[in-house]
Design a protein around this nucleic acid. Structure first.
Length: 260
DNA sequence: AGGTATGTTAATTG
DNA sequence: GCAATTAACATACC
């Protein structure tokens, strides 16, 4: 689930539920999910403070505590947040933030591939992890020069978080489908115009997904996602959807309308 | 039982 | 040294 649109929903969720409340305690139920911070340090840093704002860069979610400590959440292949009053602890709750008003926020990671960290700020984090610009607001001229500077398959570059942050396997397929471009096309063969067009398509798709609450059930039938299965018919040309391994992941596309 | 799954990263290969 | 691919990670599902 958690690609940019999903994480944007999580950001809004925190914004709507968890800001400006004093943190009473932090419970780390599985320290394997912590990255670069001890359970003790996380608890000591956050307890007594409150989250003031929620930010996002690519697939990373940030919540600023008082001062200059930011909580960083990443969701991996599975993940969720759940806020509630006197909620019962779930089996996959990995870190729980208890507020002084009896409400708590649970960071849930079923497959434990997510990570929880602390950072002095979003900018610093982005720099340290060498993340590219966020996919929603990357400048398309910048995007074009980045993707044209790589001979990797365009799908691989779309998913490369150092090139542009936020697009994963599902949305990469959707962007390429809507941009009518083959996933295996080499980036350095794109014209400036093609690269910019791909960028605009990417931003349109992500924006539309966010507008629909990142809920696939609300995505238009004309999109690839509802038909992302080998052998299904393409909602645009009726051709067959093909599945093939590209850049180590399953790529689904319509050879009929994604020629170049 | 074996393959696959929306992610990142360390290790490996070219 | 760099870019690109693969393995590993943990768990659930088909």
């Amino acid at each position: 689930m958690p690609e940019l649109p999903d994480v944007e929903m999580f950001r809004r969720y925190i914004g709507a539920t968890s800001l400006h409340q004093k943190i009473a305690s932090v419970t780390v139920r599985d320290r394997r999910l912590l990255k670069g911070v001890s359970a003790r340090h996380l608890e000591q840093t956050l307890t007594g403070r409150a989250f003031e704002t929620a930010g996002r860069h690519g697939k990373y979610l940030f919540a600023a505590a008082n001062g200059s400590a930011w909580l960083v959440l990443h969701f991996g292949m599975s993940g969720n947040l759940d806020y509630g009053k006197q909620r019962e602890t779930g089996r996959h709750d990995r870190v729980i933030f208890d507020f002084t008003n009896e409400y708590s926020l649970a960071y849930i990671s079923q497959r434990r591939l997510g990570r929880v960290a602390l950072s002095p700020g979003v900018e610093r984090f982005v720099e340290e992890h060498d993340l590219g610009p966020d996919a929603m607001d990357i400048d398309c001229a910048d995007f074009a020069s980045r993707i044209r500077g790589s001979k990797a398959p365009v799908k691989s570059s779309l998913m490369n978080q150092r090139l542009v942050a936020g697009v994963g396997n599902i949305y990469a397929d959707e962007v390429l489908f809507q941009g009518r471009m083959s996933p295996v096309l080499s980036g350095n063969t794109l014209s400036e115009k093609q690269a910019r067009h791909l960028c605009h398509t990417m931003q349109r798709v992500l924006h539309a997904a966010v507008d629909r609450g990142a809920d696939p059930a609300r995505f238009p039938a004309s999109w690839l996602l509802p038909n992302r299965e080998q052998g299904r018919s393409c909602p645009r040309c009726g051709g067959r959807i093909r599945k093939e391994r590209v850049a180590g992941r399953s790529a689904y596309w319509c050879p009929g309308c994604q020629q170049t």
